[in-house]
Amino acid sequence: MKSENPLALRATPLIRGAGAFIVLAGAAFFMGDYHNDVYRKLLLWVTLALGYNFLFGVCGQVAFSHFAFYGIGAYSIVIFLFQLHLPFPLAAICGIALCIAFALAVAIPSTRLEGFYLALVTLALGQLFIVVLNEGGTVTGGTGGIANYRLPEIYGLRLRGPWYTAVIALLVVATYAVLVRLDRSWFGRACRAVRDNPEAAAAMGVDVARTKVIAFTLTSVLAGIGGMVYAFVDNTVNPPIFGIENAFLLLFMVIVGGAGRHAGAVIGAVLLFLLPFWLSPLVGHHHALVFGVLVVAAILLEPRGLIGIYDRVADRYKGSPSR
């Protein structure tokens, strides 16, 4: 690792991040209302996939609660703002605190046991969350959810149209930056070490349980923040969106794209999000079948996902192994 001039080293990621934001946000201003809506959801799926990839791909935790936390974020901001009438910053902080509390309550008991147990507990949490939403009466709005609210003015500004899409673009870029930084640090290596060989990780001084709990809480909070942003995309929150089906779709995105790789998560999310738009005219509602085939094909043919195919092609041209 040769370090270049330190100024360039510091400027590069910032400039790259700003560039990505300008491109992603700028694109929204060239789209109509319908495409803005699709684009916003695409960006949210990418955000979720990035977070879930860190949990599942980097840290090796098989959890199905990601969408429940997305829902906790979405519902909590709406309930805190419009039923408890908290000011926006306080509502956001309370929503995050709620996500942290739930994440710790799930992660701390489950990490003491093996991976399968976490999958079951989070699956149960996902289902329970939907039940609570459906039975929540006036607080959650029951099966119909909560609607008829809109983003309050923040510092006298009401973001709408492509400007709100820009907020989501900022969320994607910030999530990506945070996760990449974590991944390239002692923490990311500890997560990968725990995934690859927990006993050896412990022998290297990694607190395995603590690392798992932090990774779970952190990615769950990121999902919760995504949910808060989502709450003002449709200006309605209702139970089906936060169900188990979407949690599985997220898992498929990460596997098809390439688990453990940020770029893979992005590719998987974009592909599986857009696929129904292309497939529906051809096969109607049977696109779930195509997803199934894709996932099985990915696992059998290229366990490293689409990014693995890209790596092999790139290696052939460069002739050197890349990460």
Binding site: R189, R192, N197, A200, V206, R323
Partner: peptide, 13 residues
């Protein structure tokens, strides 16, 4: 070894 990492990252763990 930590199979998902290059040699140098294994050492960094």
């Amino acid at each position: 070894p930590f199979a998902g990492m290059p040699v140098i990252d294994n050492v960094l763990v």
